[in-house]
Nucleic acid binder design. Structure first.
Lengths: 204, 204, 204, 204
DNA sequence: GATGAATGAGATTTCATTCAT
DNA sequence: GATGAATGAAATCTCATTCAT
């Protein structure tokens, strides 16, 4: 049903320059204020486009947010895949996933803020089909499956549960790091933090 | 708060019966729809009170949500404290905390849904002073401090990080359990799940 | 229909002292602000009574206003009748009516203000049956009829038209005198003003 | 004015068609019911526009009423000026003013009703600067000044008093004619009525 | 007589979304 | 692509009126 308009509203058709301006405005504004406190005119003005351009290419306020978020997360996915290249040892691969995520948080705290201010977990999930960033999550899943196959991961629980531990910890660490004022580097402690997680998910 | 009588708005003054009706309506509606899709008139009608009553005792839509949420979480705190009584062994105490949380999720999935649909992590934190439910979080913190004191917990990281692991995992497990359709009991796997977490946070 | 409540809400049953306080508050407040800008709580507080007392004895905001207005106009009627005593010459009687009205305006500008701020001509008329102050208007009418009978008044038009001229001029003079700042005495010019009116309504 | 955009709210910018519909609705509804009994939603529905359109172009309920009233009175002014053309004799000019007013009343009783139902004399005056219809009242004043200059008008009183007599009588005649059920034509008696007024204001 | 609480109604604002140009 | 205008919906606030104590 939503896809009926997909053909009409597709940010991909937008002039790349304009798109960047819009996505930056989204990041700036939605990270500062809650979703319902943000007016699309601010975004439009901030990006120097008309409201109609936004509606034409995104379709709705919600879609704008999720599409932009997806674009930003795409960068994380890209980076993740890039960094995973050439690492053979399984634990090292996972450690890398962990590190890239924390590193991304440190370099893009606004994205974390945006997610905390304006993204309802639930809505995000629902939009999943379109915006869940399969590249990102797919990479996670693939790395996990790999570990299970190699027999190094805990097999008392469903594979999804392992993902829950990883994501739960990563999200929470990112959030509190931002909320507590982005003091002392997250990545500097990455190894200690990862070892804790590793003990949780590896085969005991 | 634009409300001139913000100081006056206090749900505690409300007739207990009415309050329960309102809080139930909040739970029902906000768990189904996102914050900005909920109209207070629905809540009013659902609770059989007038809009004015809501504004008088809560002050605003946001305050209504957080006050109600706080009331529900108060139940969790109460239960938590109750269950902790008489358990001596430290690990057992933490296991209990873990179990009570999952048990609460299983028995009150709507609260989890409400948090996922309508509560921005950020706003929640900001409202902290008023609604963070010190009883609940205080209990967590106290149990943790206890463990540190006894030397059984990982001391390579800040105590807050331990809390992040626990909360991160608990929240994520609860959320995905609800989102994946509340299949198979969470508490049934509580021990396995807890042991994983325990390996993460205990002194290696 | 309205009279069904007459038995219930009747200002006459009110403690005279309280009634005076209420009527004074009505005068003070309704003369300063338009009807719909006046809150009954102000009146209640100003008169040191409870809202319920007002409702019990007056029945409604509108009734309160008209009943109070009627009480004040009663004073005009009383004074009018009093002053008319012992004047034989017809023209002199009418001149007196004219003078008393202007004198009343000068002494009670607030009543004029109240009528200008808060009384819709129409509503006043409709409430006529109850609040038209038959004593006052009855006196006018009687004096007029007298003049017609004596053959001194213009008989080319309906008697009511003569009343229209008198009332129209008196009301307008009163209103503009108040609005223009209550400068120079109205009564001082009463004779000149009356002679103008007399030329209009007397038989040419 | 609470309206932040008060400066923006200007009915003149409104689509003429829409404006006519709104003004007609205002006339219809405010003439039937008192100001505070009228809901703007009725007006909006009656004019087939949204509430927001009304607020955008008028700013407030009161402004809507006065702006509309002004528009209607503009028609009277126009007609007045038109009819005055080519009349040389001073008394005839004033007679014409008198007649046009009564004729307008006869043709637009709803406007009189609206003024009686919903316009507080006081508020109207205060809004004067904006809505007093300088064309209309200016014309009155100019005609009067003319008469004074020619020495045909009573000069024992201030010029404004002469205006008071004219307006007082005209308003009152119009009001009672409407209230008494709009029986027998007002204009048919215009001459007799005018001669009465003329005796009052002309030099004796 | 008084006090406190609740309600329905409606004024006013803000905003996502749509339409026409 | 952009601009301007209109709309429906809902947040918020104020108040007359009613009810129960």
């Amino acid at each position: 049903m939503r896809h009926s308009e997909a053909a009409t509203a597709d940010a991909a058709l937008l002039d790349p320059d304009t798109r960047v301006r819009i996505e930056r405005a989204v990041l700036d504004v939605f990270s500062e204020r809650e979703f319902h406190r943000v007016g699309l005119i601010e975004i439009a003005r901030g990006a120097n486009v008309s409201l109609q351009t936004i509606y034409k290419y995104y379709g709705s306020k919600e879609a704008l947010l999720f599409s932009s978020l997806d674009a930003w997360l795409g960068k994380l996915a890209e980076r993740m895949i890039d960094h995973l290249q050439g690492i053979e040892d399984y634990k090292e691969r996972l450690r890398k996933v962990f590190w890239v995520f924390l590193d991304f948080t440190e370099k893009n705290p606004k994205i974390v803020q945006l997610m905390m201010s304006s993204v309802y977990i639930n809505t995000w999930r629902k939009q999943g089909a379109q915006y869940d960033n399969p590249e990102l999550f797919g990479t996670f899943i693939r790395v996990l499956a790999e570990g299970r196959a190699k027999g190094v991961l805990n097999d008392q629980v469903d594979e999804k549960v392992l993902l829950d531990y990883i994501m739960g910890v990563l999200f929470r660490l990112s959030q509190t790091w931002v909320q507590r004022g982005m003091k002392d580097s997250l990545t500097r402690q990455a190894n200690v933090l990862f070892e804790m997680l590793w003990r949780a998910i590896s085969k005991p």
